[in-house]
């Protein structure tokens, strides 16, 4: 078993899947010759050729639209949107077409499509290279949205997404690419979509989160452990569909829930998770459900102090947890 970064885990999974299934193709802006702006696809065109790892025009609607056509016609396209911020031109294709074709065709056609997109801030990406867009897609029936929080999960979730018969959005946090390292088995394995994972056992409160925030929550939990506060961390991994059972289980276990995400507070996944708990686990709650999320401002600022103020950090998670533990 090798120690890999989050980025390497994704690249090696893409390589493994390209080798395993010759229906799979990758395309997107600069994914071929350059190997992607973040080098996720580096070396893949050299190994699999220009027909399977394709540099596309700068046209996101076209990238997704043609991918939908390719998927319906038997390929396994795994297009990349260079930054999640640029996914908006493709929203019509994703929401109106990809998400609905199975329903519209009464089950005759599926769209086995995986759209990969780097998202998130804290990397001085400013307004157009920092956004979290997952909640917009999590609202849409017919889509699946997964966001790995560790290199291990990155591999297993990507393999599952590529194997899935329906469209999956696979969001990768930019700040996680090289900062997160972990052991990743060489052999292929699948992490089922819709299954959350308890990343840490605890008794005093539960942090429910996903993506980069999983590692931030883990750092906060280590600090809090020294203060005598025992934190359980549930990594959602899939935000659509949500693992309702796991969410309720941890809520019932600790009675205190802090939902954390970098995406803006209002209309974020935290609201949905909170509602599920309020609906199904009210009599286990010992405190109001708390949310810690990015503020409702239009975009991630470029100014470093303002960017820091926007970002959810391990310190902020620890602070909110203390408040909740003390309640």
């Amino acid at each position: 078993m090798a120690v890999m970064t989050y980025l390497e885990a994704i690249r090696e999974t893409l390589r493994q899947e390209l080798r395993r299934d010759d229906r799979m193709i990758i395309y997107g802006e600069d994914v071929g010759v350059r190997g992607g702006v973040f080098r996720v696809t580096e070396g893949l065109q050299a190994e699999f050729g220009e027909d399977r790892v394709i540099d596309s025009p700068l046209a996101e609607a076209a990238i997704v639209g043609t991918a939908i056509g390719a998927a319906i016609n038997g390929l396994r396209p795994v297009p990349e949107i260079e930054f999640a911020d640029f996914i908006f031109p493709a929203i019509n294709q994703i929401v109106q077409e990809a998400a609905r074709i199975r329903y519209r065709s009464n089950g005759d056609f599926g769209v086995p499509l995986v759209i990969r997109a780097p998202f998130g801030g804290g990397v001085h990406g400013a307004l157009y290279h920092s956004q979290s867009v997952e909640a917009l897609f999590a609202h849409v029936p017919g889509l699946k949205v997964v966001i790995p929080g560790t290199p291990y999960d990155a591999k297993g979730l990507l393999a599952s997404a590529i194997q899935d018969e329906d469209p999956v959005l696979y969001f990768e946090h930019k700040a996680a690419y090289r900062s997160l390292k972990g052991e990743v088995p060489d052999e292929r394995y699948l992490i089922p979509i819709g299954k959350a994972d308890v990343k840490r056992q605890g008794n005093d409160l539960s942090i429910i989160t996903y993506g980069l925030m999983v590692s931030y929550a883990q750092r906060a939990a280590e600090t809090l452990e020294k203060e005598g506060i025992s934190v359980e961390i549930l990594d959602l991994r899939s935000i659509r569909p949500l693992d309702v059972e796991a969410i309720l289980e941890t809520a019932k276990k600790t009675g205190k829930v802090l939902v954390v995400h970098e995406d803006n507070l209002t209309g974020g996944i935290g609201g949905e998770v909170s509602a599920l708990i309020a609906e199904h686990a009210l009599f286990y709650l010992d405190a109001p459900i708390m949310r810690l999320a990015g503020p409702d401002v239009p975009a991630m600022p470029y100014s470093p102090p303002l960017e820091h103020a926007f970002m959810v950090t391990p310190d902020k998670i620890a602070e909110a947890s203390r408040k909740l533990a003390k309640f």
């Binding site: 020294k226 203060e227 005598g228 506060i229 310190d315 602070e319 003390k326």
Partner: peptide, 19 residues
């Protein structure tokens, strides 16, 4: 009472305030 263990050897200012 959830008393803080004395293990917090050198808490930073914020932790101290919270504690």
């Amino acid at each position: 009472e959830a008393s803080l263990p004395p293990a917090v050897a050198a808490p930073d200012a914020r932790t101290a305030a919270t504690a």
